[in-house]
Structures are given as structure tokens and as C-alpha cells.
Amino acid sequence: MRMRHQLATAVAVLAVSGAAISPALATCPRTSSADDTFLRTAHRGNLAEIAMAKDAGKNATTSCVKRVAKVLLRDHMKMDEEVKRVADKVRTSLPDSPTDEQKKQLAKLRTKAHTKAYDVAWLKAQAAGHMKTLDLIDHEIKYGHNDKVRHLAKKLRPTVAMHLGLVHGGTCHDSDKDHKAAAVNGR
């Protein structure tokens, strides 16, 4: 709020003084710190999901987990492009990597590579991660200030809900029937 007030005061001073206002400044979309946090968290989540999906492609033991990982990889790469595009439009800087916690989770998972325990741990991590992501998205949809960021959250929600359906309960679900059930249930 204070930053908005300072920006409004600066624009008013420039207008009164007769100075030209840059079109970019005049049309700069406003974001709240919550909008910025959503974009940064979503980006880091996508980076972590991309890394975990690639890892599952190499280290999972079941074809179901490998197929789900392929879907998650494809979708999280697309979603991250959208997050980066919106962040650029609203001038939100994004981090370069997942959080330390996300990196540790992947490292711990890799210790179980090529075992059934890997698949179980991967599915549980995906279920928990996608639940948190849905909560993050729902919070942004309800409380976000910037229309572009809220629209992005609304756009991402169905894909994340479908992903949760694929890993719900820490179990692999990759049939057409499972996809339809996930879409109907929204989670």
C-alpha cells in the first residue's frame, strides 16, 4: 500500500509540474505482495515439478509413474511459460531455482532410485505438492489484486486439479477413467 501511495504521489507531482509521464509507468499493472508471492511460489513449484518429473522418468520402476511423470513434465513446462509471461508483464522478478526444501526433497527421493519405495515416495510427494498448489491457487483467485495474476491462477487450476487426480492418495491413476473422475471432482 505504501508503495502504491508513493507511486500515486510521484505521478501527481509529475502531472502538476507539467512533466511527461511515461506510458509504461501510467499503464503499469498493480500487483500486491500476495500477487508477487503467488507468481514466485508458482514458478518455484513448476521448477521443482519439472525436476521431479524428469527424475521419475529415469528412476521410477512402474510404467504408470513414468507416464504420469511425462504428463506432469509437459504441463509444468507449459504452465511455467505462462507464469513467466505474466510475471514479465507485471514486472515481478522470479527466482532462478526451487527452494532449498524442494531441492532436499528431490535429493532424498533420489536415494530410493530404481526401487518400489521411490515410486511410493514420488507419488506421495506429488499428491502433497499438488494439494499445496491448489490451496495457493485458490487463495490467489479469492484474494489476489491483479486481474492478470488472478486470471492466470484460474487458468492453471484445472491442470493442477487433474494432476492431483493422477496422484491422489499417493496412488498412480493414469487411465482415461481416472482423468475424467479428476476433472469432475476438481481435485
Rank of each mutant, 00 (worst) to 15 (best):
L134I: 10
S93Y: 08
F38G: 03
N59V: 02
K70Y: 06
R4V: 10
K70V: 09
K132H: 14
A183W: 01
L166P: 01
D178C: 10
D138R: 13
R30S: 13
D178T: 11
M1D: 14
K104C: 07
V167N: 01
T133E: 10
P95C: 06
H145Q: 12
L7Y: 13
G165Q: 01
R67F: 11
H5G: 08
H151A: 13
M77S: 14
S22C: 12
V149E: 00
A87N: 06
H145T: 11
V16F: 14
T92R: 03
D178L: 05
P95Y: 06
N185W: 02
L72F: 07
L73W: 00
N46G: 09
L123V: 06
A12I: 15
I141D: 06
P29K: 13
A121K: 00
D75L: 02
A56I: 01
T171S: 08
N46E: 15
G169S: 08
E81I: 01
V167Y: 01
T133P: 02
P158R: 04
M131K: 13
A42C: 09
G165H: 01
K78N: 12
K177D: 12
L109C: 04
M1I: 07
V160C: 03
H151P: 03
K155G: 06
L94F: 08
S33G: 06
K78T: 13
T99A: 02
Q105E: 15
L164P: 04
S17V: 13
R157P: 13
A42I: 02
V149I: 09
H114R: 15
R150I: 10
K58W: 13
A153R: 05
V184Y: 10
R67W: 06
A60S: 14
G18Y: 05
R74W: 10
K116I: 09
R40F: 05
D176C: 09
V167P: 03
V83R: 02
E140A: 04
T31Y: 07
H163T: 03
L123F: 07
T115C: 07
T27E: 12
T27V: 11
S93K: 11
D80A: 02
L109G: 02
H114Q: 15
T62A: 03
V71Q: 12
M77Q: 14
R4T: 10
P98C: 07
